[in-house]
């Protein structure tokens, strides 16, 4: 610490020092503008130049000298990450086409790099394999798949070239086979490889880097894969019919004059909601429909084709039960007379 106190600041004087100061400031200005902060690191091809200067006093006055300049070029690091950007499983249904899964490819290297893309729909450990329809590049860069607007990807033809620290969004379009059932899942993966080359970290490709340097494989091995899942959301409905009889004598025998109350219980199962469930039942031959006897969930309905859900067509009853979530039931009743 003793030496520290002895340190003196010596104001730069003399024309050589001014020349040196100018030279220094020029270097700073040039390098600052050419080297914005990149998370991926200094851009490939950038020269690192080091030069030291010294000033000292002689009998003839102050003198400034410069050292030699050492120049080192920054090589291109090949690095990439891929991520699924869907918030969760992408819903599909048996036989559906045009499932859209979204992936994001980020160039975490320090040079412009083209990436080859491969989608794999036949991964193990899942319930079914969809059919790959297309890989599509989000060419209008809005993050949303626009059929007919975004460009279909062809490997080796329009490999996306991504600048350092930049990303592209890619859509994988698939079709779901007809035979799948509710809760089946499919793993769809997207792989991106640096076209310059891949390998263990440190693998070098001489002269292949941006700016004329080498290209060196970084910690990501210059390729990356991400998985996304399709999940089948299917509902099914079971209809259970039962009858109770009330005869004119207070018993339950099917004799003329007896009234039969039919009960139809629709049970929705699976995942999601069954939309626009309509329950219909023909009036049994030889029986007479009892006017205004339709109920839905114990609420009476009219026979007319009107705003309420019930209707008698003359030969059958029909009740529009609406959208029914899985796990719920809807109960419809109506009455007929045995003549």
């Amino acid at each position: 610490m003793k030496t520290r106190k002895l340190l003196r600041h010596r104001p730069d004087t003399g024309r050589h020092s001014i020349a040196s100061a100018l030279l220094t400031s020029c270097i700073i200005a040039a390098t600052l503008s050419a080297n914005p902060a990149y998370a991926a690191g200094t851009l490939a091809g950038t020269d690192i130049q080091n030069i030291a200067s010294a000033t000292f006093d002689t009998a003839g006055g102050p003198v400034t000298i410069q050292s030699n300049t050492v120049v080192i070029k920054v090589d291109e690091l090949l690095d990439v990450t891929v991520a699924s950007t869907d918030p969760g499983d992408v819903n599909t249904s048996p036989g559906a086409t045009g499932n859209v899964q979204t992936f994001r490819i980020t160039n975490t290297g320090n040079g412009n790099e083209a990436f080859g893309l491969t989608a794999n729909v036949a991964n193990g450990g899942d319930d079914f394999d969809p059919t790959l329809q297309q890989i599509v590049l989000d060419t209008n860069n809005n993050g949303v798949y626009d059929a007919g607007v975004d460009t279909v990807y062809t490997s080796g033809v329009n490999d996306p070239v991504i600048a350092p620290d930049q990303s592209v969004t890619v859509f994988v379009i698939t079709a779901t086979p007809a035979g799948v059932v509710d809760t089946n899942r499919a793993n769809v993966s997207l792989n991106a490889v640096a076209r310059t080359g891949t390998g263990t970290p440190g693998t070098s490709f001489a002269g292949a880097g941006q700016g004329g340097g080498d290209a060196v494989v970084g910690s990501t091995t210059a390729q990356a894969t991400a998985n996304g899942f399709l999940a089948v959301r299917a509902t099914s409905v079971v209809l259970l019919k039962s009858a109770t009889i009330l005869d004119p004598f207070g018993g339950n025998r099917p004799v003329p004059g007896a009234v039969v109350t039919y009960s139809l219980v629709a049970t929705v199962s699976g995942t999601g909601t069954m939309n626009n469930l309509v329950i219909t039942d023909p009036i049994p031959a030889g029986s007479q429909y009892q006017a205004a006897s339709i109920t839905l969930e114990a609420a009476a309905l009219t026979d007319a084709a009107d705003a309420d859900a019930g209707r008698f067509t003359g030969t059958s009853i029909s009740v529009a039960a609406g959208n029914v979530p899985a796990g719920q039931t809807r109960t419809v009743t109506f009455k007929v007379l045995i003549p």
Partner: peptide, 16 residues
């Protein structure tokens, strides 16, 4: 001759 007030300056390269 002896050099007095010897000062060495090294601007850091921007990429370092």
């Amino acid at each position: 001759a002896t050099a007095n007030n010897f000062v060495v300056t090294n601007p850091l390269p921007a990429a370092v």
